[in-house]
Design a protein around this nucleic acid. Structure first.
Length: 939
RNA sequence: GCGGAUGUGGUGAAAUUGGUAGACACGCUAGACUUAGGAUCUAGUGCCGAGAGGUGUGUGGGUUCGAGUCCCUUCAUCCGCACCA
């Protein structure tokens, strides 16, 4: 008597079904991919996850589900689809955890990966797990190190505009010395330190000197760059980790420090990285972000000779037309000439200012636009044309890493210079007559329109003419030259950390040498602790008996997180090859990634570095393409809903959210598993942490404790992580897959909310019931009616269109409409339901496999079956229901034959009694008929 | 300050090229069935209005027979950033 629903075949037993098919796919290797297929290849890639201790949360699968659906769709439409997965398994959190607990990061990483795998397996993805990669495995990072070696052994040849062997450059030095052309290949960094030399001079240099010179050309090089250094932690911090000059963790002082470390000369590729964007099928917003990041600007470099000193200050300006309006120069506090130029009277002020600036993070200096600060050096430069003395100031709004670290200030035509000049009462000299009304007492005229005045030979020219004329003038007189500047900086590559790829370098004295490629990988050594050494070396300094040939010190820093992720898409093509990073045959078979799915937060970091390495590997002949990802879809972030309790300051008393006014409280994140509909489980809370075991509560009048909430990023530290596991247990993977898609457009960010999941689950149950009559599985083998075909083909068209434009949310809706309609018309025809099952299989692979088998097909064959084709014949209509509008407002509908001419439609509309009512006895001024669409009567 | 987005019911959202605004769901209301239901089914549900009807896509304008969609203006919110000279 209780059996009615529970054991009936009508029941959709998703747990059983999903377990069955996941097992089937595994043992039959259903998703294994080979290169032997005659079908065209299609490569779908997900951004691989960092396996964190919190496990996979509901945000991860959003992109994976979308790419899985698309990959399955491509498979059904005749492609040999590669859809691999792996782990970005080097990284800071594992190391932090290791520092706290002493556990080896490899161990916790392994545990996390196992958890991730278990969670991924439950969602029914079509990954070919035989191709799994991990960036932290020696077999993988051997090739990351190999790429480093290639970069070290390469320079960027400006003539051929591609990377080439450093041997070629050495040969050139031996034959011709260093030409000015080669020098111009360097867009930033160290070019001021090199002077051209002859072949004879080159040959006479010591080996060490030669290596130093070559270091200025290598694409992986040891150079000096500024970092946020925290002496107390003995480590470098990201801008994010520095708050008001103190480290976020521990609150220790942080200073800007020049550190000699490994960098990547990505700047050499600036123009190609910019140009390459034009041909990529990416979201415009991401491309625009990259363009801004690369930041190409055209202008001139101008030398201002120093007064009473040797040498000159070089500035970069995009407005050479305003050169006659210069009233002072500003140097970055870190500029190398600061010490030399500071006069005795100013030395104290300058020293104070420089040290203050040093403690401000770059982020802070950027964000703070309202505070104007600076100091006069006491020295002057000479204007290259007027020969007037120009005071030299220091200001931390000038950044040492951009341009030359010095600017020529033209207060009348630059807002920042204007504020600086006003604040310090410096001269403001107008050199452009604005093209519109403008009050120079209120601010600068920064538009690039107007007529140049007070500028000698530029007078009367337009801004654009002035720019050109001045560039020629400074070149003619030797004051400088035209210059293209990029704000892109070289990428710092060394990290003072343990859990990363060792850099395959050893030192003889100060000179770095590569470890021979045939001795790779250079394994990450064991250490007793994961902290820096007492004398300030990175953790690898703790490794014992770790020397090259037992003599030479290895490089002790490791590679950054982005190293392994900059080329991983290639390794999936040939994941076990130990002769090369991937065989040329496999690389050319698959080509670059056809569809890349991942978060937009990687817009500038990962995506820029991966493009850079791809172009480099292209230059040296490893890959035939020079962009890694042809098309990209960026999924939005799924945000968590954090819950808070409010502790009265200094007490163990917690006030309910509705009562907290009147108390001074601290908001504390509380684990969302202890909260139900904002109501806190009081006993659970006390048991959660020993520190809360004696907590007392001030409750709402209703007797409950209500938590506050906030929508923010999901993170372990916010205790707001929703894992998919619980939902899979309650509703099944197919429901979760479709629900995540149903939430909204995949690219949109949204807070996680499970309210609607029952609707999707109900849909799958309804679909399941379509195949069951009178309590058993049964389909109608006769020919369906026209009406059924119409429902099916309408759906086929919509589902295909939705898939082609990555509109997965409307796809789910269209399946719901189809199942609702088929339920309504009844008939459960095999011919219709079989097609619907194929159509649905990318979204809900488990339930459809089960149905497919029950329909009598070979188990597992659904994955390869051809996707239904749309046949427009089923949708041809003889009639159309016209919406009739009056002055653009829809009033009523009339069903008319499709075959009518415009005149006939007009006549038919006019004869409607409703029409008479709406035209109110007037004569229509206009009668618009769009056949098959609308009718609009203008009265 | 710069750059990128987003504003549509109580909620998530739909509306592919300008052509019936709110599909599909959640929620809610009423009802049926049931010992019960996180089950199923039926009807309703943008707002105002008894109704006729009016009104409605952040604001204000414009183009158009017709605007959520195109143009201008303005407000709000979110995200990113390296004040880019």
């Amino acid at each position: 008597m209780y059996l009615c629903a529970i054991n009936s075949p009508m029941e959709y037993r998703f747990q059983e079904i999903e377990k069955k098919w996941q097992h089937f796919w595994k043992i039959n290797q259903t998703y294994r991919v080979e290169e032997t297929s005659t079908k065209p290849p299609y490569y779908v890639l997900d951004m691989f996850p960092y396996p964190s201790g919190a496990g996979l949360h509901v945000g991860h699968p959003l992109g994976y589900i979308a790419s899985d659906i698309f990959a399955r769709y491509k498979k059904h439409t005749g492609f040999n689809v590669l859809h691999p997965m792996g782990y970005d398994s080097f990284g800071l959190p594992a190391e932090q955890y290791a520092i706290q607990t002493g556990q080896h990061p490899a161990k916790t990483t392994q545990e996390n990966i196992e958890r991730y795998r278990e969670q991924l397996d439950k969602l029914g993805f079509n990954y070919d797990w035989s191709r799994e990669i991990r960036t932290s495995s020696p077999a993988y990072y051997k090739w990351t190190q190999w790429i480093f070696i290639q970069l070290f052994n390469s320079w960027y040849n400006p003539t051929t505009n591609k990377a080439a062997s450093i041997d070629e450059l050495i040969k050139e030095f031996e034959q011709q010395g260093l030409s000015a052309v080669s020098l111009s290949a360097l867009h930033g960094g160290l070019e001021t330190e090199i002077t051209p030399f002859s072949a004879t001079e080159w040959v006479a240099f010591t080996a060490q000197k030669q290596q130093e010179i070559l270091m200025n050309f290598r694409l992986a090089y040891l150079g000096e760059s500024y970092v946020n250094w925290c002496p107390a932690l003995g480590t470098v911090l990201a801008n994010d980790e520095v708050v008001n000059g103190l480290s976020e963790r521990g609150g220790h002082p942080v200073e800007r420090k020049l550190l000699k470390q490994w960098s990547m000369r990505i700047t050499a590729y600036a123009q190609r990285l910019l140009d390459g964007l034009d041909h990529l099928d990416w979201f415009d917003s991401i491309k625009e972000t990259q363009r801004n990041w690369i930041g190409r600007s055209e202008g001139a470099s101008v030398h201002f000779p120093l007064l009473n000193h040797e040498g000159s200050i070089e500035v970069f300006t995009t407005r050479p037309d305003t050169l006659f309006g210069v009233s002072f120069l500003t140097l970055a506090p870190e500029h190398e000439l600061v010490t030399q130029l500071t006069t005795d009277e100013q030395s104290e002020a300058v020293a104070t200012y420089v040290s203050t600036s040093k403690n401000r993070s770059e982020r802070e200096r950027m964000a703070d636009v309202n505070t104007i600060s600076g100091v006069f050096t006491g020295s002057y430069a000479t204007h290259p044309f007027t020969k007037e003395p120009i005071p030299i100031w220091i200001g931390d709004y000038v950044l040492v890493g951009y341009g030359t670290g010095a600017v020529m200030a033209v207060p009348s035509h630059d807002e920042r210079d204007y504020k600086f000049a006003t604040y310090f009462s410096l001269a403001i000299k107008q050199v452009i007559r604005p093209s519109a009304a403008h009050d120079f007492n209120l601010g600068a005229w920064t538009e690039k329109t107007g007529t140049i005045i007070n500028s000698d030979f530029l007078d009367g020219l337009s801004v654009l003419e002035g720019v050109q004329r001045m560039i020629s003038a400074i070149s003619e007189h030797g004051h400088g030259s035209k210059r293209i500047n990029y704000r892109l900086r070289d990428a710092v590559f060394g990290r003072q950390r343990y859990w990363g790829e060792p850099i395959p370098v050893y030192f003889k004295g100060d000179t770095p040498y590569l470890i021979p490629a045939d001795q790779l990988p250079l394994d990450l050594p064991e250490v007793d602790k994961y902290l820096p050494t007492e004398d300030g070396d990175p953790p690898l300094g703790r490794a014992t008996h770790w020397k090259f040939n037992e003599v030479y010190e290895y490089e002790k820093s490791t590679m950054p997180g982005w190293a392994g992720s900059s080329w991983y898409f290639l390794r999936y093509l040939d994941p076990t090859n130990d002769q090369c990073l991937a065989s040329p045959e496999k690389i050319s078979y698959w080509g670059n990634v056809d569809l890349y799915m991942g978060g937009a937060e990687h817009a500038t970091g990962h995506l820029l570095y991966a493009r850079f390495w791809c172009k480099f590997l292209h230059d040296i002949g490893v890959v035939p393409f020079d962009e890694p990802f042809k098309k990209m879809i960026n999924q939005g972030m799924i945000l968590g809903r954090s819950s808070f309790v409010y502790r009265v300051v200094g007490q163990q008393t917690f006030v309910s959210a509705g009562m907290k006014d009147g108390y001074e409280t601290t908001a504390i994140h509380v684990d969302i598993s202890l909260v139900n509909n904002d109501e806190l489980d009081l006993e659970g809370f006390k048991a959660w942490r020993s520190e809360y075991k004696d907590a007392t509560f001030l409750l709402e009048p209703s007797g409950v404790y209500l938590c506050g909430y906030e929508v923010e990023k999901m993170s372990k530290s916010k205790y707001n992580v929703q894992t998919p596991d619980e939902l899979v247990d309650r509703f099944g993977a197919d429901t979760l897959r479709m629900y995540e898609m149903f939430l909204g457009p995949v690219e949109q960010s949204k807070p996680w909310d499970t309210k609607g999941i029952t609707g999707v689950h109900g849909f799958l149950k309804k679909y399941w019931r379509l195949f069951h009559l009178n309590g058993s599985f049964e389909v109608n083998e006769t020919t369906p009616t026209k009406e059924h075909f119409k429902i099916l083909h309408k759906t086929i068209r919509k589902i295909r269109e939705d898939l082609d434009r990555f509109s997965f949310n409307t796809g789910v809706s269209n399946f719901m409409i189809c199942v609702n309609e088929l339920t309504e018309v009844k008939g459960n025809y095999r011919e219709i339901l079989e097609q619907l099952t194929i159509l649905l299989s990318p979204y809900a692979p488990h339930i459809t496999e089960e149905i497919w088998e029950k329909l009598g097909h070979e188990p597992g064959s659904l994955y390869e079956v051809t996707y239904p084709e749309f046949n427009p014949d089923y949708l041809i209509e003889s009639e159309y229901e016209y919406p009739v509008s009056f002055n653009g407002k829809m009033r009523f509908k009339v069903t008319l034959p499709m075959a009518l001419t415009i005149e006939e439609i007009q006549a038919a509309i006019l004869s409607q009694p409703e029409t008479v009512k709406w035209i109110e006895g007037k004569v229509p001024k206009k009668f618009i008929v769009v056949p098959g669409k609308i009718v609009n009567v203008v009265i």
